[in-house]
């Protein structure tokens, strides 16, 4: 038997320590594309005042239903309002309602899911059956019901009841996913250790379980922003969300747009594109985030 040879001289490039954001962008190009669109949308919404070429509410009866041109890139509507400016301002409504509703729905759902998993037994059984009942309604029907019952209640420029109407139907879905993760965490010996140390339920839930289920929570949260934007547009389209003259994407598709779309297709094509692009971007980002945060998929 031969003696040990020296290790073969193979030179490997030293692993580079990249910032996690850079690493994410490199390994998840589709998610990065989604992220770019999301960042652009946020910038447009925040800087709308300076970015938008016209005031979204200024009516110009001299230039109604103008085709897309150098003056009005995406044309004007039946009141002569600039479609591009209304889409840019519409991002404010879409994003604020989208994020708030998603944060509300996911957070509430996550808390219910964690509590349900932690206490288990009868409480878990009751909570989960309640969630099953809520899940049996199509999300849009549930949102319609909430919006119709609560009506409008604008605080700081955001319709709080609209946020509730969109956020609440998401609760059962998030609760289920987070409960599944929390069930696994609950069985970990470090939770037993926390119990034997005499910690309170609240401490165990918030200090020991919640930090260990943040990955599914964040993933659901981002995925639902897209859903919420779509839902907001649907509710506005159905007349239960934003109301004229607020620039909102769903609203731009409804009302008089239906009467004029054959003469002026740009009135509905571009807001529709904005909705699709936003939802697509959030879905791409959410999927990539899931892959990224799942340690099993990492080398």
């Amino acid at each position: 038997m031969s003696a040990v040879s020296a290790a073969p001289d193979i030179v490997y490039a030293a692993p580079r320590q990249r910032h996690p954001v850079i690493a994410f962008l490199r390994h998840q190009p589709l998610g990065a594309a989604g992220l770019v669109v999301i960042v652009l949308m946020i910038l447009a919404a925040v800087l709308a005042k300076w970015v938008a070429p016209y005031d979204p509410l200024t009516v110009d009866y001299g230039g109604i239903l103008a085709r897309p041109s150098w003056q009005h890139w995406l044309g004007t509507d039946n009141f002569g309002r600039d479609v591009l400016s209304r889409i840019i301002y519409g991002a404010q409504t879409a994003l604020s309602v989208g994020f708030l509703a998603s944060i509300l729905g996911s957070t509430l759902g996550a808390l219910i899911g964690v509590a349900s998993a932690y206490f288990g037994g009868r409480i878990d059984m009751l909570v989960q059956r309640l969630m099953d009942v809520l899940l049996s309604f199509p999300i849009i029907v549930l949102a319609l019901a909430v919006a119709a019952i609560l009506g409008k209640n604008v605080v700081l420029g955001v319709d709080v009841n609209l946020v509730l109407a969109i956020g609440l139907p998401m609760v059962p879905k998030v609760a289920r996913v987070v409960r599944a993760s929390a069930l696994a965490v609950r069985e970990m010996p470090y939770i037993d250790a926390a119990r034997t140390a005499g910690f309170s339920h609240a401490r165990i839930i918030f200090r020991h379980i919640v930090p260990n289920v943040t990955a599914p929570y964040l993933i659901m949260l981002t995925a639902f922003v897209g859903q919420a934007i779509l839902l907001e547009a649907s509710l506005s389209f159905l007349g239960l969300g934003a109301t004229e003259p607020t620039p909102a994407w769903g609203l731009m598709l409804s009302g008089s747009a239906i009467d004029f779309y054959q003469q002026a297709p740009w009135m509905i094509v571009f807001p529709g594109l904005a909705i699709s692009l936003a939802v697509f971007a959030f879905n791409l980002f959410g999927d990539s985030l899931r892959d990224w945060l799942d340690p099993k998929l990492k080398i």
Binding site: A193, A194, T196, A197, F199, R203, N212
Partner: peptide
């Protein structure tokens, strides 16, 4: 009455530093 578990990989909360893990029970009590 305290406990030492079998699996050193799952008996410590991965989201807390060693110092936090040790200090928490002292502070709670």
């Amino acid at each position: 009455i305290q406990v030492i578990f079998q699996d050193p990989y799952s008996s410590l909360n991965p989201r807390m530093t060693v110092g936090e893990i040790l200090a928490e029970p002292m502070r709670v009590h």
